Lab assay of single mutants.
Amino acid sequence: MEVRTIKVFTTVDNINLHTQVVDMSMTYGQQFGPTYLDGADVTKIKPHNSHEGKTFYVLPNDDTLRVEAFEYYHTTDPSFLGRYMSALNHTKKWKYPQVNGLTSIKWADNNCYLATALLTLQQIELKFNPPALQDAYYRARAGEAANFCALILAYCNKTVGELGDVRETMSYLFQHANLDSCKRVLNVVCKTCGQQQTTLKGVEAVMYMGTLSYEQFKKGVQIPCTCGKQATKYLVQQESPFVMMSAPPAQYELKHGTFTCASEYTGNYQCGHYKHITSKETLYCIDGALLTKSSEYKGPITDVFYKENSYTTTIK
C-alpha cells in the first residue's frame, strides 16, 4: 500500500517557510505537534488534498525554529505562539472599519479597549522592536488589523473576551517599542525636605499616572512627601515624541487643539466601556464603527496623549 502524501510549508514567522512532505494517514499533531492554519487549530486533523502548498504555523520545537521565533517575536515564552494563534482565530472574524481616516474595530468580545489602543497607536510616533509587531502594525494602518490585535493580546497575556485596560495595554506595548531616546527629568520640591531631581528613561519617561493635564504637570502637581507634608512635583525636561497622561476616570474637559487623542471610560472596574476622542479640525468621538463630532467635550476621561518633541522648564 502506497503512502499518500502532500507537500506543505511549516513556519513560526510566515517569513521562513520549511518544506514538509506530510503523510495523509496521520494527523498534523502526530507529525508536527500543535499546528495552526489561519489561526485555526488543526492539530487533530489529517492532511487533505486542499492543504497542498498551504502554510501551517507550528510551535518552535527545534533550534532553527526557536531562533526564527525569537528573532521575529522577541520572546522565548513557549506558550506565546499558541496564544497568538488562538487569538487570531477570533480577531480574523472582527470587522476593521476605516473611521475618520483611522483603522478602528467594530465592537465584539469586549474589544473596546483594543480599538482605543489601536486608534491611539496610529496617532503617536512609535516604532516597535519585534519585527512581528512592526509588520502587523503597518498592515493594521492599511486596514488589516487582525494579526496586530492578536499579537497585542498575546504580548499582554490576554484572551479574547476578557476586559482590558488601555493604560495597561499601552504599557505592555511600550515595553516592546523603541523608547531608548526618551528621557524625563522631574523635580520634587518640599518646604521641609528641599528639592530632589529624578531622571527617568524609556517607558517611565512617557507615562504618568495622577493627572490628565500635561500643562498642569509642567506647572506642578501636589504629591505627598515622605515627611508627610505636601510637596510639588513638576516637569523639568521632556525628550520624547509623545507623552501619555493618565488618571482614574473623572469628568474632564478636553479643549480642541490642546491634545492629540484621549480615552474615555464609562462604567466601573468590573464592567465598563471605552471610547476614543481625537482632536482634528474639530473633536471626534470614535466608538467602534461609530463616529460623532463636537466642538467641545466633557466626560469621564482616563488617558490623554500629547505630541511632544523637546521641553525644558522655565521655572527657576
Rank of each mutant, 00 (worst) to 15 (best):
residue 2 E to Y: 09
residue 2 E to S: 08
residue 3 V to F: 14
residue 3 V to M: 14
residue 4 R to E: 10
residue 6 I to T: 11
residue 6 I to M: 12
residue 7 K to S: 14
residue 8 V to T: 08
residue 16 N to D: 07
residue 18 H to Y: 07
residue 21 V to D: 13
residue 22 V to Y: 02
residue 22 V to A: 14
residue 26 M to K: 12
residue 28 Y to K: 05
residue 29 G to V: 06
residue 30 Q to H: 13
residue 30 Q to G: 10
residue 31 Q to P: 05
residue 32 F to N: 11
residue 33 G to A: 05
residue 34 P to N: 15
residue 36 Y to H: 06
residue 44 K to A: 14
residue 45 I to T: 13
residue 47 P to S: 06
residue 48 H to N: 15
residue 53 G to P: 05
residue 53 G to Q: 12
residue 55 T to S: 12
residue 57 Y to L: 10
residue 57 Y to K: 05
residue 57 Y to S: 08
residue 58 V to A: 07
residue 58 V to H: 06
residue 60 P to M: 06
residue 61 N to Y: 14
residue 65 L to K: 14
residue 68 E to D: 07
residue 70 F to C: 12
residue 70 F to E: 12
residue 70 F to W: 09
residue 72 Y to S: 10
residue 73 Y to H: 04
residue 76 T to A: 15
residue 81 L to Y: 08
residue 84 Y to R: 03
residue 85 M to V: 07
residue 86 S to T: 11
residue 87 A to M: 06
residue 88 L to W: 10
residue 88 L to R: 05
residue 89 N to R: 13
residue 89 N to Q: 08
residue 91 T to N: 04
residue 91 T to C: 09
residue 93 K to A: 08
residue 93 K to N: 15
residue 97 P to R: 09
residue 98 Q to W: 05
residue 101 G to M: 01
residue 102 L to K: 04
residue 103 T to I: 10
residue 103 T to A: 05
residue 105 I to A: 07
residue 105 I to D: 02
residue 106 K to M: 15
residue 106 K to Y: 14
residue 106 K to W: 01
residue 107 W to M: 01
residue 108 A to E: 10
residue 109 D to T: 05
residue 113 Y to F: 11
residue 115 A to G: 06
residue 117 A to G: 05
residue 119 L to S: 04
residue 119 L to P: 05
residue 121 L to H: 02
residue 121 L to T: 11
residue 122 Q to E: 04
residue 122 Q to G: 04
residue 123 Q to I: 06
residue 123 Q to F: 02
residue 124 I to N: 04
residue 127 K to Q: 15
residue 128 F to S: 02
residue 129 N to L: 07
residue 131 P to E: 01
residue 131 P to Y: 05
residue 132 A to G: 07
residue 133 L to V: 01
residue 133 L to F: 04
residue 134 Q to A: 12
residue 134 Q to M: 09
residue 142 A to Q: 15
residue 142 A to R: 13
residue 143 G to T: 03
residue 146 A to E: 09
residue 147 N to Q: 13
residue 151 L to A: 03
residue 153 L to A: 04
residue 154 A to K: 01
residue 156 C to G: 06
residue 157 N to A: 06
residue 160 V to I: 08
residue 162 E to W: 05
residue 163 L to V: 12
residue 168 E to T: 11
residue 170 M to Q: 01
residue 173 L to N: 02
residue 174 F to M: 07
residue 176 H to W: 15
residue 177 A to Y: 01
residue 177 A to W: 00
residue 180 D to Q: 11
residue 180 D to A: 13
residue 180 D to R: 09
residue 180 D to W: 06
residue 181 S to E: 15
residue 182 C to I: 03
residue 189 V to L: 10
residue 195 Q to T: 14
residue 196 Q to S: 14
residue 197 Q to C: 08
residue 198 T to D: 09
residue 198 T to E: 14
residue 198 T to Y: 13
residue 200 L to N: 07
residue 201 K to E: 07
residue 203 V to G: 06
residue 205 A to L: 01
residue 205 A to I: 00
residue 206 V to N: 01
residue 209 M to N: 13
residue 211 T to I: 08
residue 211 T to D: 07
residue 212 L to Q: 00
residue 213 S to C: 09
residue 219 K to V: 10
residue 223 I to F: 14
residue 224 P to N: 12
residue 225 C to W: 01
residue 225 C to H: 09
residue 226 T to Y: 13
residue 228 G to L: 01
residue 229 K to Q: 09
residue 232 T to D: 05
residue 233 K to V: 12
residue 237 Q to V: 12
residue 237 Q to E: 11
residue 239 E to G: 03
residue 241 P to A: 14
residue 241 P to C: 07
residue 242 F to E: 00
residue 243 V to G: 00
residue 243 V to E: 03
residue 243 V to Q: 04
residue 244 M to D: 00
residue 244 M to W: 04
residue 249 P to D: 02
residue 249 P to N: 05
residue 249 P to V: 13
residue 250 A to I: 10
residue 250 A to K: 10
residue 250 A to F: 08
residue 251 Q to P: 13
residue 253 E to I: 11
residue 255 K to C: 10
residue 260 T to R: 06
residue 262 A to L: 00
residue 265 Y to A: 01
residue 266 T to N: 09
residue 266 T to S: 14
residue 267 G to I: 05
residue 269 Y to M: 14
residue 270 Q to Y: 08
residue 273 H to A: 02
residue 273 H to G: 00
residue 279 S to W: 04
residue 280 K to D: 11
residue 280 K to A: 13
residue 281 E to H: 05
residue 282 T to Y: 14
residue 283 L to C: 09
residue 283 L to Y: 02
residue 284 Y to N: 08
residue 288 G to C: 03
residue 290 L to G: 12
residue 291 L to H: 15
residue 292 T to D: 10
residue 292 T to G: 08
residue 292 T to M: 10
residue 293 K to H: 09
residue 295 S to Q: 15
residue 297 Y to T: 02
residue 298 K to A: 09
residue 299 G to P: 03
residue 300 P to K: 09
residue 300 P to Y: 14
residue 302 T to A: 13
residue 303 D to K: 01
residue 305 F to T: 00
residue 305 F to V: 08
residue 306 Y to D: 01
residue 308 E to C: 09
residue 309 N to R: 13
residue 310 S to E: 15
residue 310 S to A: 13
residue 310 S to H: 15
residue 315 I to T: 15
residue 316 K to W: 15
